[in-house]
Amino acid sequence: SAVVMEEGSPGEVPVLVEPPGLEDVEAALGMDRRTDAYSRSSSVSSQEEKSLHAEELVGRGIPIERVVSSEGGRPSVDLSFQPSQPLSKSSSSPELQTLQDILGDPGDKADVGRLSPEVKARSQSGTLDGESAAWSASGEDSRGQPEGPLPSSSPRSPSGLRPRGYTISDSAPSRRGKRVERDALKSRATASNAEKVPGINPSFVFLQLYHSPFFGDESNKPILLPNESQSFERSVQLLDQIPSYDTHKIAVLYVGEGQSNSELAILSNEHGSYRYTEFLTGLGRLIELKDCQPDKVYLGGLDVCGEDGQFTYCWHDDIMQAVFHIATLMPTKDVDKHRCDKKRHLGNDFVSIVYNDSGEDFKLGTIKGQFNFVHVIVTPLDYECNLVSLQCRKDMEGLVDTSVAKIVSDRNLPFVARQMALHANMASQVHHSRSNPTDIYPSKWIARLRHIKRLRQRICEEAAYSNPSLPLVHPPSHSKAPAQTPAEPTPGYEVGQRKRLISSVEDFTEFV
């Protein structure tokens, strides 16, 4: 048969007729292969192709491409040299491709048809291009793949890379869960390890502090508590009631339409708007009261037996805890006409967050109470924005700035309102402590230090009264110190430094 060459192609190359033996071998191979691939376009007849790359030819070592076609129900084999250009295909004639002069020997084609199974398996396991790669995943090629499931790999992101949580363990979102698992493993320790309690022994800490320079003076030496005195035992138990972190309780009120001037209507609300609910979820963490331990979680007086509701929101960081007394989460009882059960919590909070959804101005004093010092007013606006402002009593104007209003988005509203309420509550605590000038409020841990110092002074006084020969370590507060001759004046800087060093040991009130 003659071949018409394309323009620009090399000279004529004689194409030899395939021997009958080659056709029989390739026909047997075509019957084993699956003929249901995917359909081509209507211009080209339905056909199945599979590209198999052999590394070497037997005796020649030339890479070839073998295409199996099922045109007219008769499979045909096409061998081509890759750099050459194939002729145009037609549905009426068999596929013809040019070969190099080196394939002119018909014996070479017979060798190609009689490829060993080793070469076929190696060509099938190679990388296939384009559409033949999808075909190689079918059941027909499963014989050339190794048996057994593939090893499982770690989760992959859409980009093909490992997620960040699997790369950096410290930033993994499941870090707290692993800590819980470690605690569970520790709890399952053997009885021999049960006595080993991690941490620092208080006796060891005391020993280090006792021999430090801070205890060089007799006034700073630790003293032993009497065991037989019940009054001192009660004082030590009272110390446990003062937490070592700051605590805040903040009221949250929802004002519906037409309720801006009605205290009873505001306290009777059992739910609010959708934006109000989203605002609550951002204030803190939802907790169930019956599962809380009052000595570990500050509840601000809420009952854990269901008297004040089942849930509330709280927030904490390293040095403070805040609980929100939310009116809509507290039960509304029919027998309580004046809502006294709610007001006994909300009316005693220094700061209230008022979500004013009424469309009218909310005035300070609508919720009557002796300790309502500051109101954080949240007014929802259009386009997911809110107006946040402050209202306070006249005696609080020096501590709280009420002249600045803020426009905040719904997303950042819980954070801004919480921070403003916490700052206002700190100012309210300082303002409330002014009624007792001898006990200015600095912080909870300073209050613990003052309680310890008062307890020490009482013990020293009782020891001096029981044994008059012992001198008083600290003179009583009601006694007057003996007159001392004025010492020589020293520079102001040295006096300030000495006073600062003494105050650092005794108390921190002056620095606050």
Rank of each mutant, 00 (worst) to 15 (best):
E218S: 06
S219G: 14
I223H: 07
L225T: 14
L225A: 15
N227V: 12
S229T: 10
E233S: 09
L238W: 08
L238F: 12
D240K: 04
I242D: 06
H248T: 05
I250L: 04
V252I: 05
V252M: 01
L253K: 01
L253A: 02
G256V: 00
E257K: 06
G258A: 05
G258V: 02
G258N: 10
S260R: 04
S262T: 04
E263W: 03
I266K: 03
L267S: 04
L267K: 04
S268I: 02
E270M: 06
E270K: 06
S273T: 04
Y274T: 08
R275D: 00
R275E: 00
F279N: 00
G282N: 05
L283M: 03
R285K: 14
R285D: 15
L286Q: 10
E288T: 11
D291C: 06
P294E: 12
V297I: 13
L299F: 08
G300I: 02
G300C: 12
G301T: 06
L302Q: 15
G306P: 13
G306H: 10
D308A: 12
F311L: 04
Y313T: 05
Y313D: 04
C314H: 15
W315E: 05
A322C: 14
V323H: 14
F324W: 02
F324S: 02
H325S: 04
T328S: 04
D334L: 09
D336L: 10
D336G: 14
D336E: 12
K337A: 10
R339V: 14
C340A: 15
D341Y: 14
K342C: 05
K342L: 06
H345F: 14
H345A: 11
H345Q: 10
L346V: 13
G347H: 15
F350S: 03
N356C: 01
S358Y: 00
E360A: 08
D361T: 08
K363V: 09
G365C: 09
I367T: 04
K368H: 09
Q370F: 14
F371G: 15
H375Y: 15
H375Q: 15
H375G: 15
V378S: 01
T379C: 07
T379M: 05
P380H: 00
L381H: 03
L381A: 02
Y383S: 05
E384H: 12
E384C: 09
N386C: 06
D395T: 05
D395H: 09
E397Q: 08
L399A: 06
L399I: 12
L399F: 13
L399M: 13
V400H: 03
V400Q: 04
D401K: 04
T402Y: 05
S403I: 03
A405D: 13
K406R: 14
R411A: 12
R411T: 11
P414I: 00
P414R: 00
A417F: 00
M420D: 04
A421L: 01
A427G: 03
A427F: 14
S428M: 14
Q429S: 07
Q429V: 07
N436P: 05
N436D: 09
P437I: 07
P437A: 07
D439R: 08
I440F: 13
Y441C: 13
P442T: 09
I446C: 14
L449D: 15
R450Y: 05
R450N: 14
R450G: 10
H451D: 14
H451L: 13
K453P: 08
R456S: 14
R458L: 15
I459R: 07
I459T: 13
I459G: 09
C460K: 06
E461M: 12
A464N: 09
Y465P: 07
S466W: 11
N467P: 07
N467E: 14
L472I: 12
V473W: 11
H474C: 14
P475V: 10
S477T: 11
H478S: 14
S479Y: 07
A481Q: 13
Q484H: 11
Q484F: 08
T485M: 11
E488T: 10
T490A: 11
Y493D: 15
Y493G: 15
E494R: 09
G496D: 13
G496Q: 10
Q497F: 09
S503Y: 05
V505K: 14
E510T: 12
